[in-house]
Structure formats: structure tokens, C-alpha cells
Design a binder for these strands. Structure first.
Length: 123
DNA sequence: AATCCAATCAACCGCCTCTCC
DNA sequence: TGGAGAGGCGGTTGATTGGAT
């Protein structure tokens, strides 16, 4: 039933702020995680004072704010080759590929794949 | 200088799995 | 043991940016 779906969305915290993160939100999230660590994503928005769902916080942290992320947007030829060969072995297991590429996130790799490598891989 | 279009990337959605009660 | 809730993941969207015309 449609109503059930909506209720579930409410419970999972979708009725909160969406859209791009502001620098203040980023800052709050970073200091909250530094202070409390990551044990319970659902608690993070409350602890940090952010009107976001835990899911959104997790995504922001893992794809953007994590300290070990290399912020250089360009993938080196070596990384490109690694991605191509890992993808031929693992398929679209982006998180598995990301775990073998230090400093890169699954989202980054996925974006890079769809914009640069897909044609190359299937040509 | 204005407009259009393609590329890029951050973020959301929905499904699946895992964990806990 | 089964159900509910939370987290994780892959696919997709939409806003922005930069280059071409």
C-alpha cells in the first residue's frame, strides 16, 4: 500500500532538509563525528544539531568529508587502469572497487566510470 | 555577449542485507 | 524464528559549470 511506503519514509527520516550541504552543516557533522565517533548514524543528526537524516549524513561523510579522501578530482592513468581491471573482475561492485583504491569513494569511481570509462571498457 | 549543450559531480531514491529484539 | 529498523550499496537525477557556436 502507498500509505505504508510514506509512513516508512517518515520513520526513516526523509521529512528533513534535502539538497546541497552548507559549510556549517559540514562543520557540525565533522566535529560531531570527531567528538562522538560513528556508532549510530541515526543519532548523529541530533548530536550534531543538523536537520538531516542519518542516511544523508553517512553519505556526506563517506563521499566527501572523510579525512582520508583524496580531493584531487583527476584520476591518474594508473588508477584508471586499476578501475578498469577491477571492474572487469568485480562488475559494478563500486564499494569493493573503492576499497582497493585508497582515498577514493564509491561515488567518485562510479561517476568516473560512467563519464569516462564505460565506452572504453566496452569498445 | 548571449545562448545552447554536454560533461561533471553531489546528492537522493529505493532495494537489499544485516542485526537485534 | 520472524519482523522491524538501520545501514550499505548501486542506480539515477538534477544543478552547475565550462566550452562551443
Amino acid at each position: 500500500m502507498e500509505e505504508t511506503k510514506k509512513e516508512r519514509m517518515k520513520k526513516t527520516g526523509i521529512l528533513v532538509k534535502k539538497g546541497p550541504w552548507t559549510p556549517e552543516e559540514d562543520q557540525k557533522l565533522i566535529s560531531c563525528i570527531q567528538k562522538h565517533g560513528i556508532q549510530n548514524w541515526r543519532a548523529i543528526p541530533n548530536l550534531a544539531g543538523i536537520k538531516r537524516c542519518g542516511k544523508s549524513c553517512r553519505l556526506r561523510w563517506t563521499n566527501y568529508l572523510r579525512p582520508d579522501i583524496r580531493r584531487s578530482r583527476n584520476f591518474s592513468p594508473e588508477e584508471e587502469q586499476t578501475i578498469l581491471s577491477l571492474h572487469s573482475m568485480l562488475g559494478n561492485r563500486w564499494s569493493a572497487i573503492a576499497s582497493r583504491l585508497p582515498g577514493r569513494t564509491d561515488n567518485e569511481i562510479k561517476n568516473f566510470w560512467y563519464t569516462h570509462l564505460r565506452e572504453e571498457a566496452y569498445s
